[in-house]
């Protein structure tokens, strides 16, 4: 008898399948479209996807899209920039200094689980009802996860590389700048992904409480009027914003981390 040995390997290795994600997405939309047209999904449950697209189109045509999107993007940029920036800085300090670690880690652990949305009324009192309180909320919300991700990443930098740096007499500043920070980069970037998603959530929440324009305000108005087309148009904007940010971060990762295997 001669037959080939049965093959038992394979699997357990994710491979890239192009376009399947898009296909699932479009398939779901088509099912919703079909359901709402055929009538087995009432238009009180779900708006017709084509109507949502039309609403978005009208919004863009009237210029109102930018009226809402502009302030939102501004708030997101300023808030996330300061929150993540200060977060990376504090995270690196915690990672490098035992004093900072002993002093700040308990504090960060204490403020991490607070739902930051609960602090919005407080921030309104502290910073006023206008932009400043929104910046503060988003910054504060992105700060804690960035800190935790950053000092974890610094802790995980290969100690033999640091030892190597010391053995060649590199200055402390050189070791930090040329070994610790690049070594922590993968961890910092994956922390940023989480932080930016949180930033979008907080942006929406802040705009729902006190804003005239912004995606959050737009969604809230639509919800109050039970205007499902506009509500879904707003949600679509958020989703597209999230996907775009994640895409941009992915591009940055492949560029900055091209040394990884």
């Amino acid at each position: 008898m001669n037959r080939p040995v049965p093959y038992r390997g394979g699997g357990f290795r994710p491979s890239k399948i192009r376009g399947l994600g898009l296909f699932v997405f479009i398939a779901l939309l088509l099912i919703a479209e079909w359901g709402t047209r055929a009538g087995w999904i009432t238009n009180l449950t779900l708006p017709r996807p084509s109507d949502v697209i039309k609403t978005l189109w009208d919004l863009a045509a009237s210029g109102m899209l930018w009226t809402h999107l502009g302030p939102s993007l501004g708030r997101l940029t300023v808030g996330a920039f300061f929150g993540a920036g200060v977060g990376v800085l504090v995270g690196v300090l915690i990672g490098l200094s035992s004093v900072m670690r002993a002093g700040l880690v308990p504090l960060v652990a204490a403020i991490f689980p607070i739902p930051k949305i609960a602090l919005l009324p407080l921030f309104v009192i502290w910073f006023g009802i206008d932009e400043m309180s929104k910046y503060a909320l988003i910054a504060f919300g992105t700060f804690t996860p960035t800190v935790v991700a950053t000092y974890g990443a610094v802790d995980n930098v290969d100690r033999t590389l640091i030892k190597m740096g010391q053995s060649f007499g590199l200055t402390r500043a050189s070791i930090i700048r040329k070994i610790v920070i690049p070594g922590a980069m993968p961890g910092i970037l994956s922390g940023l992904r989480i932080s930016l998603a949180i930033a979008i959530i907080l942006l929406t929440a802040a705009e729902m409480i006190g804003a005239e324009y912004g995606i959050g305000a737009y969604i809230l108005q639509a919800g109050a009027l039970y205007d499902l087309e506009r509500l879904f148009a707003g949600v679509t904007m958020l989703s597209v914003l999230g996907v775009t940010l994640s895409y941009v971060l992915g591009k940055i990762e492949t560029r900055v981390l091209r040394w990884r295997i």
């Binding site: 033999t160 053995s167 060649f168 040329k178 040394w259």
Partner: peptide, 12 residues
């Protein structure tokens, strides 16, 4: 000056 077993090169 050290030469290490695991090379200790900066991968970046």
């Amino acid at each position: 000056t050290f030469v290490f077993q695991d090379f200790a090169l900066l991968p970046w």
